[in-house]
Amino acid sequence: MTVFDPKYTISSRLLENIKRIATLIYELNNRSFSRVVLLELIKRAHEISAHASTSIEGNPLALTEVKKIIKKHPKHIRDSEREVLNYNSALIWLDKLTRKRDAKFDLSLLLNIHQAVMAGLMPVSQCGKLRKEAVFVNDPAKRETIYWPPDQQDVKALMQDLFDFVSQNKDEVDSLILAGIFHKQFVVIHPLMDGNGRTVRLATKVLLSAMGLNTFNLFSFEDYYNQNVAKYFAQVGVKGNYYDIYQQIDFTSWLEYFTDGIIDELLRVANVLEQKSVTPQTILRTHHQNILDYIKKHDFITDKIYSTLTARAKPTRNQDFNRLLDLGLIERVGKGKATIYRLK
């Protein structure tokens, strides 16, 4: 086998998608929202992700049931409920990991993700381990085998080759393209006995967070795939014997679809944020925005600095700071004259 060198073309559609995603991310990153709104959206995103990613794999639970399970966390559960709780727990764990920037993207992290999503759902000897048996992929509608993944003895080398490709190209190839290529090639290798889909969708989120798009907190691109599961499988999967087709696989169509999904989710989140942010409790006035803009540019602000930017009296300036503190947008550091305010 040769070193992994994926075949793809930067089509006009793919290029436009990448440009649009960059613009949407910039706009979202430069807007300020109350902590109340963000916490509500984070909760909603976790519920949708846990529902969508398990639903793609055949979990029958409706979104309303998923919400109840995540909220109540029952002790005695069926496998379908365990799938949801495992996925939600993995989301929370990886969210914390990426926030600390401690997520080294390697095979070890991938197997830990698999361990988290499949705990209690498969034999311990297979959980968090690369497969040691041959597998095949069936078309449930036609009841026939459509894909034969690589032999088990080649899996570890193929996965290491994939991780090496990501590592060696992280400064050369756009993060969206890297994340998309990783996602599809993982599916092509099919390195795990079960849970490949859930594992790769979470791993892809880790890669995307590296480009400043924290999909754990606000986004659920799994839902885009779940809206048309047949299309997702047709785009991400391949047919035939791996050894006959691996050098002919073209990633272009998948990358277009992959970035379409990210745009769809970015637009959805932007729309939800807009609707939830315009309330008497959360709306920001010009003087509030001036404070936030100054902090974004200079890292912090003090009351003395603020007094040079506005004619508002000191008691009113205190109210301005308190409003932003109450909304969870800034934090107070220090006391008395040494007090500074930073973004939270």
Rank of each mutant, 00 (worst) to 15 (best):
L207K: 06
T310W: 08
D299T: 13
K170V: 12
V166R: 10
S32D: 11
L343K: 07
T339P: 06
Y224V: 04
Q275H: 14
K184G: 10
T145V: 13
F321C: 05
M1T: 09
A103T: 12
Q275N: 08
M1C: 07
T2A: 15
Y341W: 05
K72V: 12
V187T: 15
K96V: 10
K184C: 08
N169Y: 14
S32H: 15
L325S: 04
I177V: 09
T316W: 01
S175G: 14
R312C: 05
P60Q: 08
G128H: 05
Q275P: 00
R143D: 13
A52C: 02
Q185A: 04
G120I: 07
T199A: 03
R31H: 11
N217I: 01
L61W: 06
L24R: 12
Y8M: 12
Q160E: 12
D106H: 05
V333C: 02
A234P: 09
P149V: 00
L94S: 01
V200C: 11
K7A: 04
Y225Q: 11
L213M: 14
F216R: 02
V236I: 15
N271T: 15
S175V: 01
T282A: 13
D102F: 07
Q160N: 13
I25M: 11
V117C: 10
F219C: 02
A134M: 13
S220A: 15
K296D: 02
V37N: 06
I70H: 00
S49D: 05
E83W: 01
L325W: 13
C127K: 12
F165E: 07
L267K: 14
N17Q: 12
A313S: 11
S11G: 11
D320V: 01
T316I: 06
L327R: 08
A313Q: 14
A90D: 02
L24K: 15
G128P: 09
G197Q: 01
R317P: 15
R342M: 07
Y246V: 10
E256G: 09
G261Q: 10
I283W: 10
F4R: 05
K68G: 02
K19F: 15
F4W: 12
F182N: 03
K296W: 02
G195R: 14
K142Y: 09
D154Y: 07
E27A: 12
S125K: 13
L273E: 08
S175F: 08
D79W: 00
A119I: 13
K142F: 03
I77D: 02
S55H: 09
K43P: 00
I48M: 01
I305C: 10
I181R: 04
D250T: 10
R131A: 04
I25R: 14
L61C: 02
